[in-house]
Design a protein around this nucleic acid. Structure first.
Lengths: 302, 302
DNA sequence: GTATAGTGTTCTAAAAAACTCAACGCTCGG
DNA sequence: CCGAGCGTTGAGTTTTTTAGAACACTATAC
């Protein structure tokens, strides 16, 4: 929409941190950008930005105004979506930020399912760690967050939570692959490939591993489950993941998962959340419905 | 603010009901107005207005969009107010819609009290009947409503309610003026000046009067308490009002009030309300605080 | 029926706003 | 002390918005 170009300008300047950098992403000149910001400040009767030698920082008034700007932009998206919704959700967009565990299987399946019913709805999915995911919600960059073991804040509203058991990942040719379930102590006999601190699973394992630190041999730490699966091809190493993020054993995968005995490792909370007080677009709200329903079913079957 | 001129245009067209009438209040030509509306409709991909021979009516999509427009105009007011609030509420505005009973004493006192603390805050007060008052809230024309015996809707949020006893009004020279309190049956011996159906007090009296319709002699019905007080100068007639709306007996008023026995007439609910889900401006919120506090004190002392 | 008064709309040109380009003054870090 | 980055300004250009008059349409009154 034409009339909120000004809002996009302000938002861009905040994100870029300076007029000149923002002007590049906006494809306009710094002078034009500067003038419009000055105009707003004049209309408000207050400085929105502190001018600094290396850029612009928001003032207290600017923080208030930025919040208004972002809410306003997100709200217009919702309005457009609702208007489209009058015609049966033919168009729409859902912006998701999610933990890595969901990138392999869960989200692709869910999006495929949703788009089979609503082909006109498009998706943008950003994979991020738990901290960044919630930040994205607050900055109105994402409609929904699906995150493993997040540290919740009061600004974020939890839509559903399911407990996800932690599983051990290994090559199909691994000695432990023959067992239906494994004990954590068995895993410690093999080299471990651990998720790093940015991932939720690690936070669950950490206190347990510390107690047995002399037994465990940590061969690698990574923030990429893809890399982890690659390392497991040595047929010796063992990795960890939550159940929902494991490769589908039906497909010809060389990596398999085995549940870890519940007594050894507690389940990981997986939550779906949105920004508190925000009204989601029709498309996002309906996708959230689908997610909560599917996750709920999953919860019951476990 | 410059960038929401478009919003004001749309709002004005809705209020005026036609482009030409709206263009007069906006001081622009109908053609300019028409073009910008068409531009919005093109950007939204939908008609916002139904074109009718005698004007424009909102479509379903238009209703959604108008709600967005009005919410955001009100929200910008709040944002500006909050920014001013950073400097100690030096400026601000509160728009009130209230029942007639409050126009004589209560609201003037409250506004005087508030402005003694915050001289920079201005007020606009519209006196309206119960139906119109709530409509004003919903149309974002007023921040707060103070109404006698309103029929609440789910869109409106009640901030406080106090029970207001109904009192009889009469000349200071009236036969009943000698008594500290009166019974309703005593009043029926005199000509009655009744508030009309648009006023809350009438709704309380109506079922009681119907039962004694043969005894009561109704000399006048009016929607103006001012007129009522004028009619009472005959030293015979009796009028009705809620306690908060009666003239101050300390001042040299020729009209006095006497409580009616509680067994005869139930108390009238007086409520202060705002639009549900709306965040008030700093000034309006603080005035609402004052109102609820004062009303609450009043409630305890009764 | 037909005139009429109201409506939305389109065409033109003019006014206003937004933007570009080039230059300036400033502050920081090497 | 200098250079790289920053925000800012002035003059000129482009785009957007508005004005004014004319047109097409539809209810309503006569």
């Amino acid at each position: 929409m034409k009339h909120l170009r000004l809002f996009e300008y302000i938002d861009a300047v905040v994100r870029a941190g300076s007029i000149r950098r923002a002007s590049e992403t906006l494809y306009i000149t710094p002078s034009a950008l500067d003038r419009r910001i000055q105009q707003v400040e004049e209309e408000l009767g207050t400085q929105i930005f502190e001018r600094h030698a290396k850029g612009m920082r928001l003032t207290a008034a600017g923080e208030i105004f930025l919040d208004y700007v972002r809410r306003h932009m997100a709200d217009l998206d919702r309005v457009r979506s609702e208007i489209e919704g009058l015609k049966g959700l033919r168009k729409g967009h859902v912006a998701i930020v999610a933990s890595q565990a969901l990138a392999l299987k869960f989200l692709p399946e869910q999006i495929r399912l949703f788009r089979s019913r609503y082909p006109g709805v498009s998706f943008s999915v950003r994979i991020a760690d738990r901290g960044e995911a919630l930040k994205s919600l607050i900055a109105f960059e994402a409609d929904l967050a699906v995150v493993v073991f997040p540290k919740m804040s009061s600004e974020v509203m939890q839509l559903i939570m399911v407990a996800q058991p932690v599983v051990a990942l290994m090559s199909a040719l691994h000695p432990l692959a023959a067992q239906p379930t494994v004990r954590l102590s068995e895993c410690l006999n093999y080299p471990l490939v651990l998720p790093d601190a940015s991932l939720g699973v690690r936070e669950l394992l950490q206190p347990i591993l510390i107690r047995r630190t002399n037994k465990a041999q940590i061969s690698a730490e990574t923030n990429s489950f893809e890399l982890m699966r690659g390392l497991l091809q040595d047929q010796r190493s063992i990795g960890f993941q939550i159940a929902i993020g494991t490769p589908d054993s039906l497909q010809e995968s060389t990596i398999i998962s085995r549940p870890i005995d519940e007594r050894d490792v507690p389940a990981a909370p997986l939550i779906c959340a949105q920004l508190r007080g925000r009204t989601l677009s029709v498309a996002a709200a309906r996708f959230a419905d689908q997610l909560t329903q599917q996750l709920d079913n999953m919860n019951l079957s476990v």
